[in-house]
């Protein structure tokens, strides 16, 4: 398994899975603390109409156009959710639910009505991605990691998601203080000069960028799972945000690696002759980790000490 076949067939999908999971889990920590966990769900759904519209306009499946379309749709969705919340005086969860279901449904209709059946653009792909197909065809073994020709033929999803994951880490480090402060106490943050509105919007846009990049590689199931499961499990492991973030990265990585391996080899161990979807298994593993954390993690009880006594 660790030989040249591994490098060629499994290394890149695992790396892409891990980086996608981390890129989504990082902003997920803050979305959960801000009671906005659903926004990841919303963004990953509205990506579909964005991609379809981009295809209809450009007539090609060029990935740059797709990404821009998806990102555009994500921004439209975020603005729509805000507008519905303010104009309709509707609670945020409902505003998100209305927005992403109708935009996703619109995407499905567009897809059926337009002549996209000939290209690789279908609902299943949108949900599951195609992690298993992101192989490194030119790799001949571990030495290919130092071979410029082989490196030039890495699946383009890998450098893309790597850049996005790195961007998420950088943004989080640089804006750590205002982000934490405005998440904990928005009113106070505003009085010491944190642009709280901008902070909240930037967080959602960063989440949208992570979702779109990950969606392209691994589909929306992983995106939704990774926004919520690793950070939620991580919250149960610690009472410090800094350490929670680290746990969420550990859980995201664990889900991706374990999920990929289980999907590829697990069924064989049970005598089945087909592998199962890696995306589905990665999401399932992250759910299992959350379930485990909620029965066994050290800080799973809400810490409510007597609130109004001495």
């Amino acid at each position: 398994m660790m030989g040249s076949a591994f490098v060629q067939l499994s290394l890149t999908p695992i790396l892409i899975g891990v980086l996608s999971a981390i890129a989504c889990a990082l902003p997920g920590n803050f979305l959960i603390l801000r009671r906005q966990a659903l926004i990841g769900d919303a963004i990953s759904h509205v990506v579909l109409p964005g991609i379809v519209v981009a295809f209809l306009i450009t007539g090609a499946t060029a990935s740059m156009a797709m990404l821009l379309g998806a990102a555009g749709a994500a921004v439209v969705a975020v603005l729509l959710i805000e507008a519905i919340k303010r104009l309709g005086r509707i609670e945020p969860g409902a505003a998100m639910g209305v927005t992403f279901t109708s935009m996703f449904a619109g995407g499905v209709l567009l897809l059926e009505q337009s002549d996209t059946s000939t290209v690789h653009l279908d609902v299943e792909h949108a949900l599951m991605g195609n992690l298993e197909s992101l192989i490194w065809f030119r790799a001949r073994g571990w030495e290919s990691l130092f071979d410029p020709v082989a490196l030039a033929h890495l699946p383009p999803e890998l450098p893309r998601i790597a850049v996005v994951a790195l961007l998420m880490v950088l943004l989080m480090v640089v804006f750590w203080r205002p982000l934490k402060l405005s998440t904990f106490d928005e009113g106070f943050a505003g009085t010491v000069g944190v642009p709280t509105g901008l902070m909240g919007f930037a967080l959602v846009v960063a989440a949208a960028v992570a979702a779109v990049a990950a969606f392209d590689a691994v589909g929306s199931i992983i995106v939704i799972a990774m926004f919520i499961c690793p950070p939620a499990a991580a919250r149960l492991m610690t009472n410090r945000l800094e350490i929670q973030i680290l746990w969420s990265v550990v859980f995201a990585t664990l889900s991706a690696v374990l999920g990929y391996v289980l999907a590829g080899y697990g069924p064989l161990w049970f005598g089945a002759d087909h592998a199962v979807s890696a995306a589905g298994m990665i999401a399932a593993v992250s759910g299992a980790i959350l379930a485990l954390a909620s029965v066994a993690a050290p800080h799973r009880t809400r810490l409510g000490a007597p609130k109004d006594a001495g």
């Binding site: 402060l181 998440t183 904990f184 106070f188 010491v192 000069g193 945000l241 809400r302």
Partner: peptide, 16 residues
Amino acid sequence: DFPTRVIDVVLMGLYR
């Protein structure tokens, strides 16, 4: 329930 300690909250006062 926010995951942070007392000292960290006070240090927020030094944000400027």
